[in-house]
């Protein structure tokens, strides 16, 4: 056994014993149907497990690392972007701007869980992470997450919407970087990398392989957006009206169609 582990062995042993003890207590409380105790024991267990992790590998904790639940981290990223977005982009934005650490796999069942929660007690939460709806069939658009409090047209995906939304999100990211620099902070290098990567696919948004300039990105994205905006807005508005008439409160958020769960 290496010296590294030896030094904390006594502490680790104690923690492991405590963890095992807590687990069986939780099982007992659960069997007895005592939910309040289960909850408090669970919290205690999580704390102990974290202590075990720390004892194993004492880490200089960056004390301000946010411990927001996954859905709140996703909400934060979506609020920055303002448009229905795929999991991968949500993760990237969360990392670049909020030093968050979620993974795409944590998002796979999110929409389904939110739908379940909404069905059991509608509007119990201030917002739900929900689906974007395809303009023609009002079915959930594959792989996109949106926020329930957004106006319905912005949750509709017509043929031009993927492009329009990409341009909008590039703009929002550039604006956020400018907000940060304006407030005397600076955005992380990964935020600039993200903006540059997006800018490379927008005509006139960046010169060669330079780092993108937020103001230039906003101008270029705006110019292209102006080309698509009218037909995109029309299509979304028309579909949103149809959705208001045809869908109920659940399907309006999570989409119509037979297999809502499968396409989540």
């Amino acid at each position: 056994m290496g010296p590294l582990i030896l030094c904390g062995t006594v502490e680790l042993d104690a923690l492991e014993k405590r963890i095992a003890g807590l687990r069986s207590e939780i099982r007992a409380a659960k069997a007895a149907g005592d939910h309040a105790t289960v909850r408090s024991l669970r919290a205690e267990l999580r704390k102990t497990e974290r202590a075990w992790d720390d004892a194993l590998e004492p880490e200089p904790e960056p004390a301000k690392a946010p411990l927001l639940p996954v859905r709140e981290q996703v909400h934060q990223a979506l609020t920055l972007l303002g448009v229905p977005t795929a999991a991968k982009m949500i993760v990237t934005v969360n990392e670049a701007f909020f030093a968050g650490h979620i993974t795409t796999s944590q998002l796979t069942s999110l929409r389904r869980d939110e739908e379940k929660s909404f069905r059991t007690s509608p509007y119990a939460r201030p917002y739900y992470l929900c689906a974007a709806l395809t303009s023609e069939l009002l079915s959930p658009a594959r792989g996109l997450l949106a926020v329930s409090t957004w106006p319905l047209p912005s949750r509709i995906i017509g043929p031009l919407s993927p492009r329009a939304d990409f341009l909008t999100s590039a703009t929002r990211i550039a604006e956020h970087i400018m907000r940060l620099t304006g407030a005397g902070e600076d955005a992380s290098p990964s935020a600039y990398r993200l903006l540059t990567r997006m800018a490379q696919n927008i005509p006139g948004a960046v010169d060669g392989f330079d780092q993108a300039d937020p103001a230039q990105v906003i101008a270029a994205a705006g110019a292209e957006l102006a080309v698509h905006e009218e037909s995109d807005t029309d299509e979304r508005g028309e579909a949103a009206r149809r959705a208001e008439q045809q869908l109920n409160e659940v399907t309006r958020l999570f989409g119509a169609g037979l297999k809502t769960a499968r396409t989540a």
């Binding site: 069939l137 079915s139 594959r142 043929p159 031009l160 297999k259 809502t260 396409t263």
Partner: peptide
């Protein structure tokens, strides 16, 4: 720039 995905039709 329009894009239509036909990998499913209304979830089917």
């Amino acid at each position: 720039a329009s894009y239509s995905d036909i990998s499913d039709v209304g979830g089917s």
